[in-house]
């Protein structure tokens, strides 16, 4: 895991740096307090995970019981009131167990999200203090390969939305679009339609810098900073990327369906192109398989390519020309 390695280095380097006498005392304090908070949170997470396993082994016992009862009922080929009552009891226990398990798992995931946001804050604080170091160089000098890895990483760790029974997936979960008055926050990744130097319009992957409510315009940075350009675009030209993965097992309706027209990030690029869904993901960690519109192929489409849920958005424009 190269990316895990790099963040480990980042961690070490930061520890070293905080040990060093820093010129900017304030930043140092912020970093230190952030570090203690993070390590506390990590401890809590560890606890939560242990509790999770306790819950799981408890429910496992009951599940085995259910299994045995099922088998016995089937071999007897008769369903006596006794079994029915028993089954009912077992089911309700198993249900309570499952609920408890879900709760503790949610708490663990929330904790992870919390730690991640602390890390992000600390990264910003470190930036303010001028503490660039090897594992987190200024983006200008980031190599393309590193950028691609980062993008994949962020797609992988996009949280999975798992609702309680009866809960509908929220906007920005999978294929569900944002509400019309949604405003992307600074730092959010978006697909942005920009005019290239040659006059062609292109959907690029970008990061929101700010939004002006008076002008209804976004300021965005091209994620691929080779261009080093900052664009000011009207909100029509911005599509926020999903903030949750949709779970194909529980919310398949929140995924794009086969043959739907979408904009998808072409692998190893930072541009979105029009594509048709070939197969939607089958499991939470799966990617979409899409066919990009590509005139260099005889049938007008590329062979199926994998694109993460995070980088597939609805295509607003109808068929070209």
């Amino acid at each position: 895991m190269a990316e895990a390695q790099s963040s480990e280095e980042e961690w070490d380097a930061l520890c070293d740096l905080s040990a060093m006498s820093l010129t900017i005392e304030k930043a140092k304090m912020a970093l230190v307090s952030a570090d203690t908070k993070i390590s506390e949170d990590l401890g809590e997470l560890h606890q939560l995970i242990k509790q999770t396993q306790e819950e799981r082994s408890r429910s496992e016992h009951n599940l085995v019981n259910i299994q045995k009862t099922h088998e016995r009922m089937q071999t007897e080929n008769k369903i006596s009131p006794y079994y029915r009552t028993k089954l009912r009891g077992l089911y309700s226990t198993a249900k309570a167990d499952a609920e408890a398990e879900c709760n503790i798992l949610r708490r663990s995931l929330d904790k992870i999200a919390e730690i991640k946001s602390s890390l992000e804050e600390r990264r910003i604080a470190a930036k303010m203090a001028g503490l660039y170091h090897d594992s987190e160089p200024p983006r200008k000098t980031m190599r393309r390969g590193v950028l691609m890895t980062l993008l994949q990483q962020s797609a992988m760790t996009l949280p999975l939305w798992i609702g309680k029974p009866g809960e509908k997936p929220p906007p920005l979960c999978g294929a569900i679009p944002a509400s019309s008055d949604y405003v992307a926050k600074p730092g959010d990744k978006v697909a942005a339609r920009v005019k290239a130097v040659d006059g062609d319009e292109q959907w690029i992957l970008a990061e929101v810098v700010s939004y002006s409510h008076t002008a209804n315009k976004y300021e965005v940075d091209d994620i691929d900073e080779e261009g080093k350009e900052r664009h000011t675009l009207s909100r029509r030209r911005i599509i926020p990327l999903p903030q949750w993965k949709a779970n194909p097992e529980t919310d398949p309706e929140a995924l794009f369906q086969k043959d739907q027209l979408v904009l998808a990030l072409y692998p190893q690029t930072t541009c979105f192109y029009r594509a048709l869904i070939h197969t939607p993901p089958q499991r939470p960690q799966d990617d979409y398989s899409v066919l990009f519109e590509d005139t260099s192929y005889a049938d007008g489409y590329s062979p199926p390519l994998n694109v993460a849920q995070r980088y597939v958005v609805a295509c607003k424009e109808p068929k070209k020309k």
């Binding site: 499952a98 992870i112 999975l160 529980t250």
Partner: peptide, 27 residues
């Protein structure tokens, strides 16, 4: 020993798998 920050991403994915399965079972 605790948990390292670099493990968070993987842990997240695994916990999501568990949660997904548990909530499916609940349903």
């Amino acid at each position: 020993d605790g948990i390292g920050i670099e493990e968070l991403d993987t842990l997240q994915l695994e916990l999501e798998t568990l949660l997904s399965s548990a909530s499916r079972r609940l349903r």
